[in-house]
Amino acid sequence: MSARRQEGMRAAIESAGYTLGLLARAALLSRSSWKKRAEILSQSTVCGFGAFPVAMVVGAFTGMVLALQAGITLKTWGQEALIGVVVPASMVREMGPVMTAFILAGLVGSTMAAEIGTMAVSEEIDALEVMSINPVYYLVMPRVLALSFVTPVLTLYVDVVGILGGAFVGDRLLGLTYAEYMRNTLDTLDLKDIYSGLFKAFLFGALISSVGCAQGLRATGGAEGVGRATMRTVVICFVYILIFDYILTWLFYH
């Protein structure tokens, strides 16, 4: 391995360590989250409401594309009714949490990095520290808690919209009634599909917010540094989401 690649690898591991350490510190500090309830609520509102319109479009088209792809293949064997099984299972277990996480990484993770990064480069974080205010308690913990709880809620919404999107394609293009589709859905979807998906979403929310905060806290070098932190947040989040998605799926269904 070349020296440069080794250096890059080391930096990536170090950054992951810092991010997960930050998440652990925020989790420990969440014992006193009651005192920060106003901030947590306002962060949840900002994270949640901002993402709803995009989530609707993404959810609907994800469900529609799944139905179309699966429907075209299944129709060859006259089994198109099975999209009522395939689409909801894929949405709830996989596409719902992952798509929601991607949306939130781009929308909320990057905002957190920009916001906290701007504070870091203008000495505001140092100012908090010299006032003996812990930045992890003051800035990171409320954001991590807010996004950890908002992500499953948004995921549930994306799941529902996606399933309905699939039903719409079934009805319009595959000659499947809504009733048939929904009967298949309700018959086959089990509780584990739903809670494993929501647990993934919870973890993705925690990861996205800690990556955003970690990148922000470590931003240096003025506006350019803040820009870099924002861009890195999105890339790192995408990678983490996919890696953790695999690990969690393995744990749940192995």
């Binding site: 701007t118 504070m119 203008s122 000495e123 505001e124 140092d126 100012a127 520290e129 010299v130 006032m131 003996s132 205010i133 003051y138």
Partner: peptide, 29 residues
Amino acid sequence: RRRVGYLFQSGALLAAMDVLENVALPLRE
């Protein structure tokens, strides 16, 4: 740090808060 005050070069006020909240921050937190 509770016994020490520190004035930063830029002032380092929290941009998202008004003057009252900035000055009150150490007391509130």
